[in-house]
Design a protein around this nucleic acid. Structure first.
Length: 548
RNA sequence: GGGGCGUUAGGCAAGUGGUUUAAGCCGCCAGUCUUUCAAGCUGGAAAUCGCGGGUUCGAAUCCCGCACGCCCUACCA
């Protein structure tokens, strides 16, 4: 059976596949999220590892949406996931496929198992369970229940057929053998074994005819020729059931590699309901992370390079190709990792997300933006990329960001391109996110006086000494009179002026910084002055008279 | 209740019996640089390797027990 992406023409795909086949290995992996409306960092990491594995070995990486649960299935819910993957650049070779498109195949498989005796009809009436406290309810039920054999397990086929024909509702359950055990060798967790008696007769098909998860995954993975199943450790226990299904279906069992989970700081599983937007990857996109930087920090959660290379001590920063080159299942850890965001911050974040993710708000309120709101290492990684990546690669990101707050001008790529590059290069050293260019960097890119002043800075550098109210506008005149406006000429002018007035140069330097940028921190002042340029510098220094 | 998986500093982690008196990174602290803030550089604090037994000349590394956390145990995925 051929899987085909919705709406994608079959022919080019087939051609691509042929070319692909010729040069690549037969390894096929998939990322199979359920459409929950957003991609959280754990899911992103699973996608990343599948992708890295495929890219490393020349395999095929497939995206499949597990929308078997009709309640969760709608386009809106899928979009969040696609957006997250797109941002991270985790491009898939095939798909996206939708599990629900293959109901019929799953049903056929269930009836096939019924026919050859691997499954049976269970006529027990459906037990209603509320979704709310299902975990406890199930655990509680199992606590008290004495394991009793399903009365329909050994019902004769004739009687079973007759009751079904009479219209009686039933589910199809897998018939787990009484004696023996399943085993598989997990590429991460090692050899796994489980007695048949510890595996219950799982339901394959609901009474309304819908196939259930365990059946569906196995069918799809078989149909798609998946050779390596790389997924979260929460599926480790389920794997035994799936192995049983592969065997009953007479198909080869793929290699399983289970990944340690990424947990919240309180060690609980990441969830949208509990942790909100702070665990969604699109939040990191909107907050100004670079996809490569975020990917890099994600890769280090639950994996580390198996061997340190010649001449390398220990590295944390890896480009995408370097990650691909080094990735191996052997480097995956067994223990869960914590994505160390601040839980309290997460709540504030949640309540203010409209503001915090609105570039326009942030641009005007940069100093109200929380400094340390998420995993510190991820933040450091982002800052590291911003300050060390080739400038030419950073520029397009800055452009997009500036466009989003209407700070972009075509000249930045034309007449002023040289200036623009110098400016970005100057300020990037102390920025941690792309958003900083639009917020903290606003004063550099905007014309005239259209930028915000940080209260603290004004207090500290402009109001502290009353003399500044007249000194700075006077300095503006000196700057204005300069025929050559350079780092050295402006410094000489300022220092001479300070001496003349009998004040410390530092007073004027700090005052000027705030006058020009609204901030108390920034690059070396004379670099700032030259980047801001004569016209704006003079204008902004004169404006001090109105500020204090 | 049953079954499974895990447990090295605040977080990420190296390390699978012997120069480990336990790497490195983030964070934290201090010094240095400086006109500010970062960055950089230098240094520091922080781990009885979950706990208790055992094996061994020697254990974070092997064995047993316990505790804790997580997962599965649904006509959810």
């Amino acid at each position: 059976m051929a899987f085909r992406g919705k709406g994608s023409p079959a022919a080019p795909l087939a051609v691509a596949r042929i070319i692909h086949r010729k040069f690549m290995s037969d390894i096929r992996v998939r990322f199979a999220p359920s459409p929950t409306g957003y991609l959280h960092v754990g899911g992103a990491r699973t996608a990343l590892f599948n992708w890295l594995f495929a890219r490393r070995l020349g395999g095929t990486y497939i995206l499949r949406i597990e929308d078997t649960d009709k309640l969760r299935n709608n386009e809106e819910m899928v979009r969040g996931i696609l957006e997250g993957l797109a941002w991270l650049g985790l491009d898939y070779d095939e798909g996206p496929f939708f599990q629900s498109d293959y109901y019929e195949q799953h049903r056929t498989a269930a009836f096939q198992l019924l026919d050859n005796g691997w499954a049976y009809r269970d006529f027990t009436p459906k037990e209603e369970r509320s979704d709310a406290n299902i975990k406890q309810a199930v655990a509680e039920a199992n606590r008290q229940a004495v394991k009793v054999k399903n009365p329909y397990r050994d019902l004769s086929r004739a009687e079973s057929d007759a009751r079904a024909a009479a219209g009686e509702a039933f589910v199809i359950r897998f018939k787990v053998p009484e004696e023996g055990k399943t085993s598989f060798d997990d590429a991460v967790y090692g050899p796994q074994e489980r007695d048949y008696k510890d595996i219950e007769d799982l339901v394959l098909l609901r009474s309304d005819g819908h196939p259930l998860y365990n059946l569906s995954v196995v069918c799809d993975d078989i149909a798609m020729g998946i050779t390596h199943v790389i997924r979260g450790q929460d599926h480790l226990s389920n794997t035994h059931k799936q192995v049983l299904l592969y065997q009953a279906l007479g198909k080869p069992v793929p290699v399983f590699a289970h990944l340690p989970l990424i947990l919240a700081p309180d060690k609980s599983k990441l969830s949208k309901r509990k942790h909100g937007e702070i665990v969604s990857v699109t939040t990191y996109r909107d907050a100004g992370f670079l996809p490569d930087a975020f990917l890099n920090s994600l890769a280090l959660l639950g994996w580390s390079p198996e061997e340190v290379r010649e001449g390398e001590v220990d590295r944390e920063v890896f480009s995408r190709p370097e990650l691909i080159e080094r990735f191996s299942l052997g480097g995956i850890h067994k223990s869960n990792a914590v994505f160390n965001f601040d839980l309290r911050e997460a709540q504030d974040w949640q309540s203010q997300k409209e503001q915090l993710l609105d570039p326009r708000w942030v641009a005007r309120n940069f100093y109200k933006f929380p400094r340390s709101w998420t995993d510190q290492k991820a933040q450091w990684m982002n800052a590291e990329y911003i300050k060390t990546m080739p400038l030419a690669e950073l520029l397009p990101y800055v452009k997009t960001k500036l466009q989003s707050v209407d700070l972009w001008r075509a000249e930045f790529e034309g007449a002023e391109s040289e200036w623009f590059q110098r400016a970005v290069n100057l300020i990037r050293d102390r920025y941690r996110t792309l958003n900083d260019f639009a917020s903290l960097g606003r004063a550099y890119f905007v014309a005239g006086l259209d930028f915000e002043f940080e209260e603290e800075a004004v207090k500290k550098n402009l109001k502290k000494d009353a003399a500044l109210k007249t000194l700075l506008p006077e300095l503006a005149d000196r700057f204005g009179a300069l025929s050559e406006f350079t780092h050295d000429s402006t410094e000489a002018a300022l220092r001479a002026f300070a001496e003349e007035k009998g004040v410390k140069a530092g007073l004027l330097i700090n005052g000027t910084r705030t006058a020009l940028t609204g901030q108390s921190a920034g690059p070396g002042l004379f670099d700032v002055v030259t980047i801001i340029g004569q016209t704006r510098a003079v204008e902004r220094l004169r404006n001090v008279a109105n500020l204090v």
